[in-house]
Design a protein around this nucleic acid. Structure first.
Length: 893
DNA sequence: CATATCACG
DNA sequence: ACGTACGTGATATGT
């Protein structure tokens, strides 16, 4: 398919000149406009892959328009010599790149473009017109799109007739009338004084055109009528001036505009001569790059591969004062850190952005006495800040002794809400998503893995400042999206406040009794060594017990045990398999025991010991708010959401989690059956609601209803089955899954499910409806409007589709439960603050909150915590939280 | 750097 | 007939 790009050469080089910092090459020539133009050109070629491409330039000084209006463009400043010099450079470069350029004596670039586009239109060819001039919108048509260049030359907005209608409710032709009425100071088109865009649009919506307006002034009154009548001539003339002349005699044929890619043989030397190293790199022409001579080369030295054009100040002592003066205008920041764990990472420096100016402040300067006002601003909760992962920034700054407050807008968090399944969207992903200038990937700037190295100040500062600048660009787009998806409230009133609360919990940390943990480790060590000796003896050989591969070899080849299950790579030896093998051979029980203890030793004793902070004697986990697709939190470094509890051996680990002050208690409160209560509410199932309204044991109640028996007839087996069915319901039930869990035939499981749905008809209806809903909308939501997209809900592949269906059933339940405990945390934080309590919230484990509490607050907290948790959100069934406490986390059971 | 296993809700 | 329960993170092997 033919595709023609028409570039308004004069307009773009002008924009590039004023948008780029005044950089020069080693020969002293200013090259900024050529550089800006070329980056934009390469980007267009990359993005649209045109088959035809031309750059049009104004030719000569006199255009036919002067004949009618002497002052045309008279208001425009004379072209500065620094720019004039770059015209021939650009034209030479375009020639060497192999990009056709047109100039026609007596005509301006837009007339050439208008005329070519008229011919292309007539031939039905696809055309993209690139310019910063809104006048060009008049050329939009079915096949012609106008790419309006914004923000320097780094962004374009595409306008077809439909976008013009959406934005102005005008046709492309009416753009001329709009200009005729409102004028354009930059082009010195007078228009009608006192008529701006708003009035002009109103008039055009009423009368359709300049002529219509002038004929219809009788219907108007007052000043407006007078103005229009007085300046009628000016309006008509302005319209004429704004009209792009589309009848330029073109001697060029379609073939003359053909573009078959960059001519690398000539482009290489030309770019090298201009010292555009990053462009050479981008075109894989680095072989042409001039040898390094140690001298900075303007745009290239500092700009690396980044294409954004920004005013960046690398702040030193000398610039600090100006930065501090500008703080009231700064709304975005980026704290550059290294490493994954924010409690251990170093702060490298911070980028700060106002809409006009961007700054980089290295850590050393940030910590210097002179930067005190800057630090005050960072810690000022009334100075709102936008950023990417502010929660992480807060922690990293905290350990540098710098307070952070005023997180107003975290773009990572917003991006997560807008699509929680998109894995870890980094800033660069977001620039791509929102069409912002690309950032160099961190790996390019810092190097990856062992090669990690902080680059020289200039490169570092530019990179980090670009990040904060990028944040500014992202914020606005996201706010609109959040509004459109009804998630503004969720973002502003829940997730943003929660991120600050999480940071407080993490800074606080939870104390770990190191000696007791080591003692426990010795016990485990002894058990492990006994087990290992026994196992080797029984097997008659020593091998690596931790290797499933070697273990499989022993069990299934040497001992000849039956193969129950296979993995991709060989025999499965997981606990489920070993349980089945236990009756065949005594060693299997020992292996299971070994696995249990070895897990506790490596993950929970050794792992936890490594995470105890030298500084505080505590473990400081890092909650991640943007990982789980359902809205849950996740916990890292260490994960404190999977500390053992089910088996007594492991549960002992909890004894080492203690209060950080003598005499205090650990208090834990967990929601009782929160997911099933949520299900009862969402589905509205009467029977299930009844169970919770009467505060019955839900699994017993389920067994009674499914098996049709009375409470005292429910035996432990029936209750166990009912419990499994309830779990299955929450997970998005399948007969196969239930059969696996209960170790029964699939048919039996299917029967169970059918019986369940016969009784809980409302639940069946919910399950059916939510899947239909997901199919129709493409997403499901929680009670607080948290959203999860399920693109695979309509997949042809049975597996993919089934998975999406189960997710559709599960996410509103798990997600709403997550919403509720998050709400409870916000309320709890507020309650502690307002009452001036010393008790501290330390941990969240999905349906549980853990606190440390001084003795004089214990009685109060025993009441307050469950009350706040139960009252977090009003459902059609009560929420219930059960509280317990003790001298450590184990005792709080 | 992927895979298997297992800890939690 | 299809073949899996939902959501996470840490550790150890072995490629």
């Amino acid at each position: 398919m033919d595709k023609l790009i028409l570039i308004d050469g004069n307009n773009i080089i002008y924009r590039a000149f004023f948008a780029m910092p005044p950089l020069t090459n080693t020969a002293g020539q200013q090259t900024n406009a050529v550089y800006g133009f070329t980056t934009m050109l390469l980007r267009l070629i990359d993005d649209y892959k045109p088959s035809h491409l031309i750059v049009a330039f104004d030719a000569g000084k006199i255009t036919f328009r002067h004949e009618g209006y002497e002052d045309y463009k008279g208001g425009r400043q004379k072209t500065p010599p620094e720019l004039s010099e770059q015209f021939p450079m650009l034209k030479d470069l375009l020639r060497d790149l192999g990009v056709p350029q047109f100039e026609i004596s007596g005509y301006e670039a837009d007339d050439i473009i208008g005329s070519i586009s008229r011919e292309a239109d007539a031939a039905g060819r696809e055309v993209i017109i690139v310019s910063g001039d809104k006048d060009m919108l008049q050329l939009a048509s079915e096949h012609t799109t106008v790419a309006l260049v914004r923000k320097g030359v780094t962004e374009v907005e595409l306008y077809g007739p439909q976008q013009i209608r959406e934005k102005y409710d005008l046709t492309p032709e009416q753009i001329i009338d709009l200009k005729g009425l409102m004028g354009d100071t930059s082009d010195n088109i007078p228009g009608v004084p006192g008529v701006g865009e708003k009035t002009a649009l109103k008039l055009l919506h009423q009368f359709g055109s300049v002529e219509g307006v002038l004929a219809g002034t009788g219907e108007l009154k007052g000043k407006m009528k007078e103005k229009l009548e007085e300046h009628a001539d000016s309006a008509v003339m302005s319209k004429k001036l704004a009209t792009i002349y589309r009848e330029v005699p073109l001697e060029h044929a379609w073939e003359d505009m053909a573009f078959s890619g960059i001519k690398t043989e000539t482009a290489g030397p030309a770019l090298a001569k201009l010292e555009f190293k990053s462009l050479l790199e981008r075109l894989s022409l680095s072989a042409y790059a001039p040898a390094a001579n140690g001298e900075g080369t303007g745009a290239e030295a500092s700009g690396a591969a980044e294409t954004a054009v920004l005013d960046i100040t690398i702040v030193g002592e000398a610039e600090l004062e100006a930065l501090i003066a500008a703080l009231p205008d700064i709304s975005a920041l980026h704290v550059e850190t290294n490493g994954e764990n924010p409690h251990r990472s170093e702060v490298i420096g911070i980028g700060l952005s106002s809409p006009e100016q961007h700054y980089f402040v290295p850590l050393a300067l940030l910590k210097s006495p002179a930067a005190a006002p800057l630090r005050d601003w960072l810690g000022d909760s009334s100075a709102p800040k936008s950023g990417y992962d502010l929660h992480r920034a807060d922690l990293a700054l905290h350990w540098q002794g710098i307070a952070f407050a005023g997180a107003a807008n975290d773009v990572q968090l917003a991006a997560y809400l807008l699509d929680p399944t998109e894995a870890n969207q980094n800033l660069n992903d977001l620039t791509a998503k929102y069409g912002l200038p690309r950032l160099s990937p961190d790996e390019e700037v810092f190097g990856k893995g062992a090669k990690y190295k902080i680059p020289e100040l200039e490169i570092l500062g530019n990179h980090v400042a670009r990040k904060s600048a990028t944040v500014l660009g992202i914020v606005q787009k996201q706010q609109q999206e959040l509004t459109e998806t009804a998630m503004t409230g969720l973002f502003v009133d829940l997730e943003m406040p929660l991120s600050r609360i999480l940071a407080d919990m993490e800074k606080q940390g939870i104390a770990v009794n190191k000696e007791d943990l080591k003692e426990l480790g010795k016990e485990f060590e002894a058990q492990i060594s006994t087990l290992v000796t026994e196992i080797y003896e029984i097997c008659g050989t020593e091998f690596n017990l931790n290797s499933p591969k070697q273990l499989g070899e022993i069990l299934f080849v040497k001992l000849g045990l039956p193969v129950v299950k296979k993995t991709k790579t060989g025999y499965s030896t997981d606990a489920e398999v070993l349980e089945k093998l236990a009756p065949y051979h005594d060693v299997v029980r020992l292996i299971l025991q070994y696995r249990t203890i070895a897990k506790l030793q490596s993950t929970y004793v050794e792992g936890l010991l490594k995470e105890i902070s030298e500084e505080t004697g505590k473990v400081h986990t890092f909650y991640r708010q943007t990982i789980a697709a359902t809205g849950r939190l996740s916990s890292q470094f260490p994960n404190l959401q999977n500390i053992p509890i089910r088996l007594e051996e492991g549960r002992k680990i909890r004894k080492v989690f203690v209060p950080s002050e003598p005499g205090w208690s650990i208090l834990a409160a967990d929601y009782s059956q929160i997911e099933l209560r949520v299900l009862a509410h969402i589905s509205g199932d009467e029977r299930m609601k009844e169970a919770f309204l009467e505060d019955m044991d839900i699994h017993t109640k389920t067994a009674m209803d499914v098996f049709g028996v009375t409470a005292d007839q429910v035996d432990s087996n029936m209750r166990r089955s009912a419990k499994a069915v309830n779990f299955g319901i929450v997970y998005g039930i399948s007969d196969y899954g239930l059969s696996q869990n209960l170790n029964i035939p699939r048919k039996e499981a299917a029967q169970f499910i059918e019986q369940y749905f016969e009784v809980f008809k409302g639940v069946r209806k919910y399950m059916d409806d939510i899947v239909l809903d997901a199919r129709k909308q493409g997403y499901v939501t929680t009670l607080l409007e948290r959203r999860r997209y399920l693109p695979e809900i309509n997949a042809k592949n049975f597996n993919l589709r089934s998975f999406a269906e189960r997710t559709a059933m599960n996410t509103p339940i798990q997600g709403t439960a997550a919403d509720i405990i998050k709400l409870a945390m916000v309320h709890m934080d507020k309650a502690l603050y307002e009452r001036g309590l010393k008790s501290r919230m330390l941990l969240q484990v999905h349906d549980e909150l853990v606190f440390e509490v001084p003795p004089d607050e214990l009685e109060l907290m025993k009441e307050l915590v469950p009350e706040v948790m139960a009252g977090a959100l009003a459902l059609s069934v009560p929420l219930k939280a059960e509280v317990s406490y003790g001298s450590n986390w184990y005792e709080a059971k």
